[in-house]
Design a protein around this nucleic acid. Structure first.
Length: 572
RNA sequence: GGUCCCGUCGUUCAAUGGAUAGGACGCAACUUUGCGGAAGUUGCGAUGCAGGUUCGAUUCCUGCCGGGAUCACCA
């Protein structure tokens, strides 16, 4: 529709002898100002040295001569905007379109034929799944789904640090505490408990590493042995711990709705990265104080120097990152490669990407980095008890548990309540992460996030459930003499057709929160319509259309929630 | 200190250079024989400060104040 209006205006500009202007067509913030609006007259007025209102009057006059059926009215408003009001026919057609397209409603094809790899989550074996991983997962999964529904072939990737000091710290305690380790290794212990034990060992080892010089040395010896795979006992514990923590992560991914296609490990990337860096010494990398570095500031004032291979000859994270990036292109050659990390990695990632671009200029425009901020907990209720760190996993399980507890008056089976707790608890948490723009810190208030009111995932789900409920009830309702089309156009109709544009915009900006905000507004307009309209009553001659509209709303909400990585429960 | 990001109702988040700065929580008042009231309706309430560019600035530019990230062998 936007394209159609654009074309119309361009034709008219031609007849008025105006050429080549950059005007915009947008949805006015206030729906009272029409469905589309253009600033063309204000932009042109300057060059033509005329009054914008006068010019827009002329354009409207021309528009009225050949108004398409989708537009019912065009008028001049404010400082010279031209506002377009869409017709009843347009809205009725768009409801039909939604019902026809079903789960494809909202899709676009701007990435048709493209391959996109998204890397996200990136937890480390032997360490707990912390809150940052949860945020990265929520964001990465949503981006992946948006990309997928823009027509791309999506590849989900996860990069995990399976070697390094953190591993040795955990293993040190696991070896000291033989009995604890042995009982954790028993067959009948659930994976999550096993992983919890390892996480605790890591945390203890980490404390000792920082406070005790002798233990620090012992841990460094273990670290070396892990790299070399030279110690039978360590190998055994390592293999077990790696598998257990990875299995535990897998359980979390399942709850979160993620299925990865690729797992990359630091242990593999180290060799690849080191080789590439060494091959480019003297060209891109320089030796300095015994280390191999990249002088970013030589290419761009905003960059700085970073060490890629340290003075002991070991590759740093930077070198591994190069190995990772190039491995991705070698294996899958994606058209776009997106990496999601915490914002702390922002500056260093720019340096690494510059180094890669110098070696492979063609990759520069294909690499994108998106970031998330820190999650801060709002209330004292959730704050950590002494020595008990809140992990991403505990936050997730708490959220699910709180929703489950809220289901207490419902007559659902315990099994169903559990399922609802999972679906709604996940949505509550994800919504908090995806409601604001990426990169900034977020404040997480558990009570508010599951409150089912206003700005929350459960509110969106609850609204969908209400819609679903009336659709079920309507199955036995006689619609035979209720098939008239109303003249009035509701706010719901004015928002619902915009969904595909929102999805597209979210991809272009790589910002899922546009979808979150849109759905919240959509839910609100649905509730408003639903609260003010009697549908299943004898004297509603529009009931058939109203039900179609509700069906269209339900479909839109369901598709939208999916793009955010949330499911729509049947009831709750 | 250099570089980058951010300062919006009491709180928490929005606003591709556009119209009266929008939502949610909270607060005050109201709506149910109507299908899920976990809802709806109404009201109160904000762009850190000072300049500049523009027909038009929360948005762009400059300075200041305040907060965060980062700046060589961690990841």
């Amino acid at each position: 529709m936007k394209e159609k209006i654009q074309k119309l205006i361009k034709e008219i500009l031609k007849t008025l002898n105006i050429e080549d202007v950059n005007f915009s067509i947008e949805h006015p913030d206030d729906l009272k100002n029409g469905d589309y609006s253009t600033n063309v007259a204000m932009v042109c007025a300057k060059q033509l040295k005329t009054n914008p209102k006068e010019l827009s009057g002329k354009i409207v006059e021309e528009l009225n001569k050949k108004l398409p059926k989708e537009i019912s009215k065009v008028e001049v408003a404010g400082p010279g905007f031209i506002n377009f009001y869409l017709s009843r026919e347009f809205f009725t057609d768009s409801v039909e379109t939604i019902l026809r397209e079903k789960e494809k409603w909202g899709d676009n094809n701007i990435l048709n034929g493209k391959k996109v790899m998204v890397e996200y989550t990136d937890p480390n074996p032997f360490k707990p799944f912390h809150i940052g991983h949860l945020m990265a997962n929520a964001i990465g999964e949503s981006i992946s789904r948006i990309v997928e529904h823009s027509g791309a072939n999506i590849i989900r990737a996860n990069y995990q640090g399976d070697v390094g000091p953190h591993v040795a710290k955990a293993i040190y305690i696991m070896m000291k505490n033989k009995s604890g380790t042995n009982s954790a290794m028993a067959e009948n212990v659930p994976v999550s408990e096993k992983a919890q034990y390892i996480g605790k060992c890591y945390s203890e080892g980490s404390n000792l590493y920082d406070t005790d010089e002798n233990i620090k040395k012992e841990i460094e010896v273990i670290n070396k042995k892990v790299y070399e795979k030279s110690d039978e006992e360590i190998n055994k514990i390592y293999d077990w711990g790696r598998k257990v923590t990875l299995d535990a992560f897998e359980d979390i991914y399942k709850i979160l709705g993620t299925k990865f296609d690729y797992y990359f490990f630091e242990s593999d990337m180290a060799k690849v990265g080191e080789k590439i860096v060494r091959e480019n010494v003297g060209k891109i990398f320089d030796e300095s104080d015994g280390a191999i570095v990249f002088h970013g500031e030589n290419y761009d004032k905003k960059l700085h120097t970073r060490v890629f291979i340290n003075s002991q000859g070991l590759p740093t994270y930077e070198a591994k990152e190069i190995g990772l990036a190039l491995t991705k292109f070698e294996k899958e050659n994606p058209d776009i490669s997106i990496v999601t990390t915490a914002i702390e990695q922002g500056e260093y990632m720019k340096v690494v990407q510059k180094a890669i671009s110098l070696m492979h200029p063609e990759l520069e425009s294909k690499m994108k980095h998106i970031t998330h901020g820190m999650m801060k907990l709002a209330t004292g209720k959730m704050s950590s008890r002494k020595g008990n760190i809140i992990t991403g996993e505990s936050l997730l399980r708490d959220s699910m548990g709180m929703v489950f507890d809220k289901m207490i008056e419902r007559e659902f089976s315990t099994e169903e309540k559990k399922k609802i707790g999972e679906v709604v608890g996940v949505a509550a948490l994800k919504y908090s992460i995806l409601k604001s723009s990426l990169g900034s810190d977020i404040i997480y208030d558990a009570d508010k996030s599951i409150s089912f009111e206003g700005d929350s995932g459960p509110y969106l789900q609850y609204t969908a459930v209400r819609a679903n409920s009336i659709l079920k009830k309507a199955e036995n309702f006689d619609l035979s003499n209720k098939k008239e089309t109303p003249e009035n156009i509701t706010e719901l109709e004015k928002l619902i057709y915009q969904f595909p544009e929102i999805v597209k915009y979210s991809y272009e900006e790589l910002e899922p929160h546009h979808i979150t905000n849109y759905l919240t507004g959509l839910a609100s307009s649905f509730n408003s319509f639903y609260g003010n309209t009697q549908i299943l009553v004898e004297d509603n001659k529009y009931a058939a259309y109203h039900l179609d509209l509700i069906k269209a709303f339900y479909q839109t909400m369901k598709n939208g929630l999916w793009l955010l990585g949330m499911e729509t429960p049947e009831r709750m």
